[in-house]
Structures are given as structure tokens and as C-alpha cells.
Design a protein around this nucleic acid. Sequence first.
DNA 1: GTTCCCCGATATC
DNA 2: ATCTGACACATTCGG
DNA 3: CCGAATGTGTCAGATGATATCGGGGAAC
Length: 544
Amino acid sequence: MRFDEFAKRAARVESLSGDHEKTEEVAGLLREADATPVVARFVQGRVFPAWDDTKLDVGPSLVYDAVALAGGTDADEVERRVAERGDVGEVAAEVGTGGQQTFGSTEQTVEGVQEALRGIAEGSGEGSEEKKKRELANLFMDASSASAKYLARLVLGEMRLGVGEGTVRDAVAEAFGVDVTLVERGIMVTNDTGEVAEVARDGGDEALADLEMRLGRPVKPMLAQSSTTENLFADLGADEAVVGWKYDGARLQIHVGDETRLFSRSLEDLTDSLPDVVEKVEEDTEEDVILDAEVVAVGDDGPLPFQDVLRRIRRKYRVEEMRDEVGLEVHVFDVLYDDGAVIDEPLSERRDRLSRLVDGIRGRSAVVSDIDGVLEERRAALDAGHEGVMVKNPGSAYTPGSRGGDWLKLKPEPETLDLAVTGGEWGEGRRASFVGSYLLSARTDDGYATVGKVATGITDERLESLTSRFKELIIAEDGKEIEFAPEVVFEVGYEEIQRSPVYSSGYALRFPRFVGVRDDKAPEDSDSVEKIERLYAQDEGDGR
DNA sequence: GTTCCCCGATATC
DNA sequence: ATCTGACACATTCGG
DNA sequence: CCGAATGTGTCAGATGATATCGGGGAAC
């Protein structure tokens, strides 16, 4: 299939609004394309399957350069236009064709594009960035304007077609007349919609059924939903619950076979950066199992901030030194494979199984039958400096990648601060015509110091009214960045205060969200850096 | 010619 | 991570 | 009893802080 044809079809998918229509359109595309696996990935904005460690290493900046090179402008001009239009794709489409004519006429195929991108991904070493730019620019020059649009989006991983894994799953089933459940299982096990589409096309239901969970091949971890103490048992739909401590670390899927492999939440192989974890696991476990766990950083006085975990995972250099500086603890809380997949067993059985398989590195959990039991565990977890608890349905299976009501997380109510808005940034995509995020500052003795930004928690309607209000307060603009006169105060919710190497106050909010405008407050009445300092110190004292 | 720093990309939450 | 919004589908409400 | 209103689940998209790695280029 020519990439140009793919681009036209993609445009059609994008224009549809109903899920069913989209699914049908994607199904048609999969059926007609000879390069089924490639198309199945491209349609989701993926070039490589999730398990593939190949990275394009191409981001917005490099794309602007390449588009500029192809279109004979400069990167600043491209960036300016992207800020205006809110979409790289559209700018690429315009620039590459001078607004009118198709530049090249090379019949680039979908597979050809994939090959070219693989080539780009593989480049490294001196001069490689320049080479990437040139190769990308060549792709743009060979592309029609429709192609350029989707090519730009593809390399950035944002197709914006409204198509995700669920749509592709249904489309594969429809396109090749196979069972959706088998497709879903296949995707779960392979983590590659491309491969599953091909298997479905060539071998039907039978071939799909042969795909199985295997040691060394990671599976997406099961996810949780947020809940509240009031709704907990109703959300769970059970009268008993398995309550486990929730640790502030990184998710780890541990495969113990001939060798031990560690995978992250997004299926990245983390083994080489965590030799101490491998040792601990091998001391405590038997072979041929897959475990689900969380790693946390620990010091002499209990758990360390999440930032310390980040200093360990994915590290390539000075791994041995760091292992002494930032200690790690593993807390295993589930088992997915024990000489064969056990994900369909109910949690209560897997929990028993787990207690037979591991001992020292098992995370703490208890079975309770009322909210008081849950709160008791949460108190204990918080006192020990951890994040809260996970509450799980004892009868539930392990459903990889899904965020159903079987696992619930219970975090403390978010704290709130009143902060002055001193800046902002123009948005992208559907926020293109709005200020998409706001810079927050806390009071100091002689002015304001920044503590982070907020962007989430704002309704579309509010986004619009805020934008017109803040337009009046613009002092300066630089690219997409805006400076505002400090007049408006936002109430902002957050999870935690952390030390910041970036913001001038020296602190930043973790998971900030917009709660409301404090029209009753002037910026001089906003919260101070001193208060933030105090809150930070207090958190530290609270057993962490 | 080396070393150091900046910044973009990619990952964690 | 967080949040909003769009849609599909199931359940309840109101006449 | 039927159509409208309401609730629930799933998905997509737009955005937060932060750490490391790698390439490029300035400083030495």
C-alpha cells in the first residue's frame, strides 16, 4: 500500500466520530493493506511494537528542523506556525508543498516508510543527528501534502485518529472474521497488534489460540482505578477485600527462568540497571515464575522520595556505585505465571500461591471485610512512610493492561494551595487556541517564586474563559511561553511537595490540578514559599 | 584535542 | 501521574 | 410500555515533575 493511500484513509478515520464507524473504517484498511502488521501499528501512531526496544529518538524539535529543511524555511518559522495551528502535521503539509504543489512524486509505500524510519532509529554516534534530520527531510520531500501530515504525526507518535488498541482489536476481529476475545488475548500476550493482525489474517482463530504467555515475554501490568473511602466497597463489588500497601516506587514485572529479567510498566527491560534486585529475587524465589512487584528506594530511616527511584532505573553507567548510594527494596504482590499462566485464577488463590513462592520480598497485604479494616491498614502504611493502600477484589482474575474496578487505589485527599498565576503556555491540538497550562508562583518577601504549572482539572468551557481573561494580563511572549501580570490566584490540588531543581522556589508540586479561581484573593494573599517549606518539612517528619 | 554543559528525547510516577 | 470529554451500553425515571 | 434521562465503563488526548542518556557545540 502506498503511504499516500494510507494517509487518505487515515484522514477519513480521523473525520469520523463514532467508535463503530472508526472500527469499520480501520477494518477495511487492514483488509486491503498488504502490509497488514505495519498498518495496524501505524494507525495507532506506533512504528515499532511495544516490546521492541528500538527508539526513534525523534521529537518535536528534530521534526521542526526536518520540515524546515524540506520546505526551505527555518525551524523557528515552523515552530511559530505550529504554535499558531496547534498541529505539526498541518504545518508539515503546508510547508512541504509550498501550500500548493506536491513536492516529490516518489511512490513511497507504507513498508518503505517503516524501513526508512528503522534506519533513522538505528543511527547513533557523531553526526547521527544531522543525518537523521536529512533522512527525515528526504521523507517529507518525497511525500504528498496529505502524506506529510501523517508522517509528521507518526514519527511523533500522535496520529490523533481517535484510534487506540481497543479500536484496532475490534477492527482486526471484524476484518478477518475472528473472535474478539482471541484477538484480545493475542494482543495481551504478544504486545504487538501488528503481529496479531497478521496471525489473524493468515491463521484465523486457531492460530490466534496458539499464542500463549511465555517466560521472558512481558505482559502489560494490571492497573487500578482511584476510589474513595465512601465508595470503596460499592466500587469493588465484593464484601471482602485484599488490602495491600501501596509503595511509591516503580512497577516491576519479574521473570525468573534460566535467567532473571526485569520489565517496567511499559515493558522496558530494566534488568541491567538493577543487579541488586536480581540478586534479591534469585535468593528468594523458585524458577519458572512471573511476579508483579514494586521497587522502592530506601535509606536508613525508611522509604526515600520517588526521585531516588528515578536515579536507579534505566541507569547505564555507574550502576555499582549507585547501588550503594540508593538502596532498593522489592515488594512482590502478585504472581502471573507458575510453570504456566495463572492469571485466570482468582486473586485469593494467587495470593496463596505467592506465599508459597516468595517470602522475604513479599509486599504486605491483609484480607479485611469492612472499611475500618481498610483504614487500619492505610494508617499503618502511611505511618511507615508509604503512599496508601491498594484494595482488590479477592475473586478477580489478573487482567493485563486493564483498569477495571477489581483493583482500587486509595490515596489520601489531595492537599490544596492558593497560588498566583504568573505565566502560561499556548496549547496544542484541541487546546491550540487556548492557554494550555499556567505557571504558578508563591509569595516571597519581595515578589514571587515559581512552584510549577497546572494544566489538568480545567473544563473546556473554563479554559476558554480563562484564556480571554488572561489575554488582558500578558506582559511578554516568547514562542509559546507567556508572562502574565500577577493578578489572579488559583486554588491548586496536589499530592505532595517535592524538592525542585527547576523552579525558583526550590520546591514543586507533584500531580498539580486546577481546583478553582480564588476571586476572593489578591495575589498578595496567595500562599508563601515559607508555608511551602513548612509543609515540606512536615511531610518529611511524618515518617518519611 | 578534550572537557563540560545544554537541551531534546524518553522513561518513571 | 492527573483530568475532561466523547461515545456505547445498561439501568432507571417519568409520563 | 416506551422514550428520555442518568449512570458506568472504556478510550483518547492534553498536560504535570523529574532523572538519565546522548549528541552538539562552546569553552578551555
